[in-house]
Simulated assay, not measured.
Amino acid sequence: MIHYAVDGPPDAEVLVLGPSLGTDLGLFDAQVAGLADRWRVVRFDLRGHGGSPVVPGPYSIADLASDVVELLDHLGVRRFHYLGVSIGGAIGQWLALHWGSRVLTLTICASAARFADPPQWPVRAATVRAEGTAAIVSSRTGTWFTEDFAAREPAEAERLLDMLRATSAEGYAGCCEAIGTFDVRSELSAVTVPTLVLAGADDPATPPELVREIADGIPSARFEIVAGSAHLFTAERPEIVNTAVAGHLTRRVHA
């Protein structure tokens, strides 16, 4: 079973947080601080990331979503809100399509219905299997977070990069292969879950126009751009994200 952490009131509605490629559940420390007073927050590590076991790849998004369902069944959680970043957002789309009756709301951050340049993902997987995740650490500043953030919050930027350094080569590569084969563009109209889609204004990995395709495909989905942020805006601009997410979850409750 994948590694997880649970915070917040045991009798509250559950909010599941799915991390991005190369990070672990610590990506969401600011969401726990801002949201775990009102929701029971469940965070998890992807295969081969953080404290989760290293499983030989390749993986599929269906495999990774099944890991989440297995975890929630273990915890006795039937229905839940879900927020995912990047590959975590792809997992969220899969959950909404295949386990939609269990999903109360969906929040997708810096993700895609099909990620850009699918052929480059197996190439990146091969690079990391040969050289380890250290081979790509230097490319993450400016992609994961803006240069301004790195200068303003160097300790936090380094904490995020340390997650990548600690990620197993096989876990990272297997997830790359899952990203490269993911494509639900033709299926999004079947999503009936109340959905909020967020994009980083300065994100080169999943630029706003790519992320917007998710919102355009899901009936009645809301789309917002997070100013002054790159790919990991849950960590770079948590005050904006937490406010948007709390509003989204609360609107569902009031409805």
Results as ranks from 00 to 15, higher is better:
R212A: 14
T141L: 04
V137P: 00
H49G: 08
S186E: 15
T195A: 11
G51A: 09
I91H: 10
C175Q: 06
T250M: 03
R43T: 13
R43M: 13
L188G: 12
M1L: 13
I214P: 09
L71E: 14
F80T: 08
I91S: 02
L106C: 10
E170R: 11
T133H: 07
E13K: 09
V211G: 01
M1T: 02
R252T: 15
E209Q: 14
H74P: 01
H81E: 07
A62D: 15
P119F: 12
V226P: 12
D37L: 07
A150F: 01
S60I: 05
P119K: 00
S168L: 09
T250N: 11
G142I: 11
E236I: 11
R185A: 14
S52Y: 07
H74K: 13
P207W: 10
D45N: 08
V103I: 14
T181N: 00
L64D: 07
W99S: 14
T133I: 08
D183W: 09
F80Q: 06
V103H: 08
A134K: 05
V16G: 08
S60W: 02
E236M: 09
R252L: 05
G8R: 09
E131M: 05
T127F: 00
G132A: 03
R185M: 08
L25Q: 15
A169W: 08
G174F: 12
P238H: 07
A65P: 05
R237L: 03
P219L: 08
E236V: 06
F145A: 01
A36L: 04
W94G: 00
G34C: 00
G57Q: 04
A227P: 11
S139Y: 00
Y82M: 10
R252H: 15
A205I: 05
L210R: 14
G88F: 05
R185D: 03
A30I: 00
E131W: 02
L64C: 11
P122S: 02
T107M: 02
A255N: 06
V103C: 10
V85Y: 00
E153K: 11
S86F: 03
D148T: 15
H3I: 00
W144T: 03
G92C: 09
D203S: 03
G174R: 08
G26R: 15
R129W: 12
S186V: 13
G89S: 04
R237N: 03
V241A: 05
A130H: 10
G228Y: 07
A199P: 03
S186C: 04
V42H: 09
A135F: 01
A112K: 04
R251A: 15
T143M: 14
Y59D: 07
V128P: 04
R165L: 13
S66A: 15
R237E: 02
